[in-house]
């Protein structure tokens, strides 16, 4: 089934160049302080959740105001994209900080026992967020290969066994999201290019997660060596690939020129690792370059990656400039 038909069948109607976000937004100062107080036991979980809901509502209102089409909840209640799931699943223990780049650190989980899905991990938040807007809200998950690759493993015999066990638990979460009403679900696999020889494992495990389920699936992949896994990576069974394009100044297009991109593409067009707010002319030029290679009806637009590394102000400005440029592009396409 063509990706557009799948959206239509799901009852999701979107404009040309749908606007979305990768997932995370920066936490406002009051959330950072509240999380720190919660860790020290100075705030109850309920009090923290009330503040997280407030921040989620603020981000949803902001996205609606600037005309984002498919919303995210901004992950005010999550820390790291792998650690969050490790904390919710049985079989993990938490370890201390490991650096990913620059001054960024994350808590890398340790698998110490069989991984078990005991209850939905994201469904309550998805429901709360969806209830705050009429626009579609994405369900946001991390894929089995990335959770495996970004965890220490002290239990399973090898990487394949770990990944396939995680695929079973992520599928249960996808099923729970769909039961709650989610129609668009993103399953991030940023680690998928790290070992090109393991791409079949990424595909096999994602197949376990998505096979036969009635939703439009995205996967977000970033900062990888795509040349080594393209075009085979498009066999990952999802409808939409959300890729960082601006970090490499659209270098990825060279791959797509050699072999056309067969699925929908959400193109990241702003760098999330710089304080600089890109000029409208820069984004327009990036999009025009992309549109020379990708058919308009296949193209969605967002930032390169989650915006949580920016300040609230920077993140908002980056999203605003994307929205302005895309709206103007839509006009020129409708004329």
């Amino acid at each position: 089934m063509h990706t557009q038909d799948k959206l239509k069948n799901l009852g999701v109607e979107l404009p040309l160049f749908p606007l979305t976000s990768v997932g995370s937004f920066p936490k406002p100062e009051y959330i950072k302080k509240a999380r720190a107080r919660f860790v020290k036991g100075e705030l109850t979980r309920k009090e923290l959740e009330t503040l997280e809901e407030k921040a989620t509502r603020e981000w949803i209102e902001f996205q609606e105001n600037i005309g984002i089409d498919v919303l995210v909840d901004g992950e005010m209640y999550r820390g790291d994209m792998v650690a969050y799931f490790a904390e919710e699943l049985k079989g993990f223990s938490q370890s201390s900080f490991v650096r990913s780049y620059g001054n960024r650190y994350y808590r890398k989980p340790v698998i110490t026992a069989p991984v078990v899905w005991e209850k939905p991990m994201t469904v309550d938040w998805w429901k709360k967020a969806q209830a705050m807007t009429q626009k579609p809200m994405k369900g946001m998950l991390t894929g089995p290969y990335t959770i495996m690759d970004w965890s220490f493993n002290e239990y399973y015999k090898d990487r394949e066994a770990t990944c396939m066990a995680l695929a079973q638990v992520i599928r249960k979460e996808v099923e729970a999201l769909i039961s709650a009403g989610a129609k668009l679900i993103q399953i991030d696999e940023p680690a998928c290019s790290v070992r090109p020889s393991e791409l079949p494992l990424v595909i096999q495990s994602m197949n376990v997660v998505t096979e036969g389920l009635p939703a439009y699936f995205f996967t977000h992949i970033c900062y990888g060596d795509f040349e080594k896994i393209y075009p085979e990576m498009t066999e990952i069974p999802v409808e939409n690939f959300d890729l960082e394009m601006s970090n490499s100044e659209n270098d990825l297009l060279n791959c797509f020129k050699k072999r056309s991109f067969p699925k929908d593409l959400t193109a990241g067009i702003v760098d999330v690792h710089t304080h600089e707010i890109e000029a409208e002319s820069t984004l327009k030029a990036r999009l025009e370059q992309i549109l020379d290679v990708i058919p308009a009806r296949q193209l969605w637009v967002d930032p390169d990656c989650g915006l949580k590394t920016r300040t609230v102000e920077e993140a908002k400005k980056k999203l605003e400039v994307i929205a302005t440029v895309v709206k103007s592009l839509r006009k020129s396409y409708s004329n």
């Binding site: 650096r99 990913s100 780049y101 790290v194 900062y223 970090n247 490499s248 100044e249």
Partner: peptide, 28 residues
């Protein structure tokens, strides 16, 4: 910061660019 740019950043004829994953790690 990383094993590549720390050596290269102070050489003439070199500009430091975007992030890439360092081999098969979750380090950039």
């Amino acid at each position: 910061n990383d094993p590549i740019s720390h050596i290269m950043k102070n050489l003439e004829g070199v500009k430091i660019g975007g992030l890439l994953r360092f081999f098969d790690t979750n380090f950039y």
